[in-house]
Design a protein around this nucleic acid. Sequence first.
DNA 1: GAATTTAAAAATCTCGAGAAAAATGGTTGA
DNA 2: TCAACCATTTTTCTCGAGATTTTTAAATTC
Lengths: 232, 232
Amino acid sequence: MNISASAEGLSAEPKTLVESAYRALRRDIIEGSLVPGEKLRVEHLKDNYGVGAGTLREALSLLISDALVVSQGQRGFRVAPVSLEDFEDITRTRVMLECEALRQSIAIGDDAWEADLVAAFHRLAKAEEKRIGSEVREEWEERNRIFHEVLIAACPSRWLKHFLSILYQQAERYRRMSLYLQPIPRDIHIEHEALLQAAISRDADKAAAMLAEHIQLTFRSVQAIPAEQLNK
Amino acid sequence: MNISASAEGLSAEPKTLVESAYRALRRDIIEGSLVPGEKLRVEHLKDNYGVGAGTLREALSLLISDALVVSQGQRGFRVAPVSLEDFEDITRTRVMLECEALRQSIAIGDDAWEADLVAAFHRLAKAEEKRIGSEVREEWEERNRIFHEVLIAACPSRWLKHFLSILYQQAERYRRMSLYLQPIPRDIHIEHEALLQAAISRDADKAAAMLAEHIQLTFRSVQAIPAEQLNK
DNA sequence: GAATTTAAAAATCTCGAGAAAAATGGTTGA
DNA sequence: TCAACCATTTTTCTCGAGATTTTTAAATTC
């Protein structure tokens, strides 16, 4: 059962033009090339993305699920705006949900889960070594996402994982604004490694505490950015 | 900032045909007249709802946000399936989120919030007196939703409230399958009243415990339904 | 000079028709 | 009898064009 469009969108190949446009738009919004608050004029965008107007409208409708696009009545679509308040809310909610999911995952996860986790960490570490280059950056982003995903993979609640995938996506958008300026500000590798160790040794309290700190640190590093950067 | 289509959809009047179709479809899915798992053929439905094919597709795309509709690749749309597992997950997740939101609401809510809460309870109680009739039933459903909404209204987290509105909608769908058979099985009124008292007296622990029990009781009453009723 | 009104321009919203894919059903062959 | 195959039908997906609404800009009035 595919709960969300985003969940189905990440794994398989796009089979329709709507799906392709949906992904391309999502990427551009998360990357920031489509600026927060910007008006999304269908007549302009349909040329950029090489699809018809109806198709693009449908893709934009799907992006509302992810709260990356907002629409109001008869006034078209906009890129969802950003604010420090919003990111603080995202961070708080994510800490709450992701810690709970992690505890359940640690409690339930079997050997196969452990193996997946170690593998995901290893792939992430490999990408961390070579720190520069934009396609390497994309690779790191993807592997970081997967590491966090695998951490909570053994949690049995589909809904918890669904909400977390939305929040992760939102957080990534803010994080990119930060890292764009200060490339790798803190030593994320050590945080990830400690988190892995705590999870493997089934120390749920410690793992949850580290995860909370990890997520909150990302918030603080974005918070440090001058307010003008966050185009209100 | 309107986070979701559902949030914007509930208050104001529909300004576009997409919005109208979205609401009509949502109502029919929650009510159950569109059966879980059923294929949603655009060519058929566009006549029923009096809109064009593209418009209906867009409305269906919006319903994916609410996880009331699922779509896969080149095979069209379906009403989201139901299962006891899913409802159990919804219940657990909702208990977790709604209790947390209630605690925050109780901690932060001011006199105006209290007044709104008492008013919402009163309106709900009025609807509870006259228990029969289908339009009265609709009214009760609406007021019940508002009561739960006002309970957590003072919670400052938009995301928590956003997720809860989705979960409430999902739960309502399951609840209707139950109440259709056994009209008002337990004395919900007493539960609501005790919940109100605990909230007003700022007893967060007690209120959260009652809310958890309240939500879980609904799950158990659906659980009691024979499995054949839940069209898998 | 500022505010209201009016007209033009742009954008959104909507529909119907055509191309591509999937589901259907009957036929053939082992 | 069963399975594989092909033609037909249905359905999904996609596009371009027309009707409303919003936005923009100029013109008029006070």
